[in-house]
Design a protein around this nucleic acid. Structure first.
Lengths: 254, 254
DNA sequence: AATCTAGCTTTGTCGGACAAACCGATAAGA
DNA sequence: TCTTATCGGTTTGTCCGACAAAGCTAGATT
């Protein structure tokens, strides 16, 4: 720490970055609310006094960050960042860091248990109805690993939603996005895999209905341990989430 | 699901998005490794056959996503997304969603406990040395809430690092970024707040050294409960993380 | 009144241009 | 010989102007 700095640190960020920062500030501190228009590119050009190309680069930054989007008619508006999109970025990062399935499993175990605890405490009737709907649809496709895996992922998303904790919802999503795509392989590869999965879901839902935290935690643990056993028949937990595997997960995104 | 779709879904993404996607694919599946150059804008223009403005918009997207950056001489290269940067995006999103401190607290409790459990199991000598160093520096500034708060945040980052679980490291970061900036107010507002914080850190570090999981969890819980009690003297847990509050957190980022 | 049509606006893309910063290599000086 | 200065050639950041396609608006038509 220099004593009494003589000069202020000079700011040499490129113009497009300053444009993005300026708009971001307005959104973050609430002067522009989600859903409200940002203005046309022409207006931004006039306000910032920079070229349209520069404005557009700034817009791309904000768009990728999820802070703004184009509505049906391509006009710019502020918006709430979608968990899904953010989580995709994170999943991507985890893949590049070559994390192992053990890390994913351990973290998911923690977060899913927290999730079910929250759901047991705070699930609304509507949450329970959604979970019940999911369970019903799952039972109908017990023999179809692909569809069952998708419904399994949805079940866990609904459970996190039922916990009424949005921080938890966001925190669990990246791991889940990487974790659940393997479900298909596992359900398909284990005899009675589909049936066991649905049984676990049923017990979890019952526990949430009964507000029975212990049962909820117990069956969530079992459910994930089942996944683990299935996975270990295929590969080591210490294998890293691979690049090639990612191509799957990516094809599914919109 | 339509039976035998006659036409393939046509792709109408703008060109800059396609450019970004194309480069992203190469990085994700490992054909371009972190640290390797992407090529100059001119080369990309030639390869993709689009205008430089278009290429630049694509680059902005990838840059914001953390997949590429400019090295010292501004040349483009692939890179591993920094947890810090990603977490900042997430924190931003949580603020816009107006999550409450209760949600933050609950999730942080879960993640910090998981973190200490991992650290007790797997901390290396180096991890322990880092934590000890942090503790020593903390003891030296026990009367200075601002510096102590910063060191507290660092302590928890080091703990997560010691857990050797990168997924956990990433998952806890967003909540922590919002959670810990309040530490300063709380430490400053509670008598003996600084001393209690350091005592908790000391016990946690001891537990990690002794590989005593119970003690580690116990003191981590206490540590966070202390924060909670301090916070509730100032405000309700059900208050949302506010826009104005964010301006603080933002000023600190680089 | 509902529909159609003809502008006007806005976005996405293109081409070219130029200053500033950076790189590499050569020339000049100790 | 080693350091310093100079000078082109690249590359990025920014600017200007232009145009086609798609949406919106409002007047014209049935």
């Amino acid at each position: 720490m220099a004593a009494t700095p003589l000069f202020r640190r000079i700011d040499v960020a490129p113009a497009y970055q300053k444009v993005a920062d300026a708009i971001e500030r307005e959104i973050i501190n609430g002067r522009i609310k989600p859903g409200e228009p940002i203005g046309t590119e022409q207006q931004l050009v006039a306000q910032f006094g920079v070229n349209r190309s520069t404005v557009r680069e700034g817009i791309r930054v904000l768009e990728e960050g999820g802070l703004i989007r184009r509505d049906s008619s391509r006009r710019l508006q502020a918006c709430l960042p979608r968990y899904n999109k953010l989580a995709t970025r994170l999943s991507r990062a985890l893949i590049l860091h070559e994390v192992t399935f053990r890390e994913l499993f351990e973290t998911s175990m923690t977060l899913e248990v927290a999730s079910v605890e929250g759901a047991v405490e705070r699930a609304t009737d509507e949450n329970i109805a959604e979970l019940a709907g999911n369970l019903e649809r799952s039972a109908a496709v017990v023999g179809n690993p692909a569809e069952l895996a998708e419904l399994d992922a949805e079940f866990h998303v609904l459970m996190a939603k039922a916990s009424q904790n949005r921080v938890l919802q966001l925190a669990r999503e990246p791991a889940a996005q990487l974790f659940f795509p393997t479900t298909e392989m596992i359900v398909g590869g284990v005899p009675e895999g589909g049936a066991r999965l649905i049984e676990a879901h049923r017990h979890i839902l019952d526990a949430i209905k009964q507000r029975d935290k212990e049962a909820g935690v117990l069956w969530t643990r079992r459910h994930l341990q089942d996944w683990r056993r299935g996975f270990e028949k295929i590969a080591s937990l210490d294998r890293s989430v691979e690049h090639t595997y990612m191509e799957h997960a990516y094809a599914a995104r919109q």
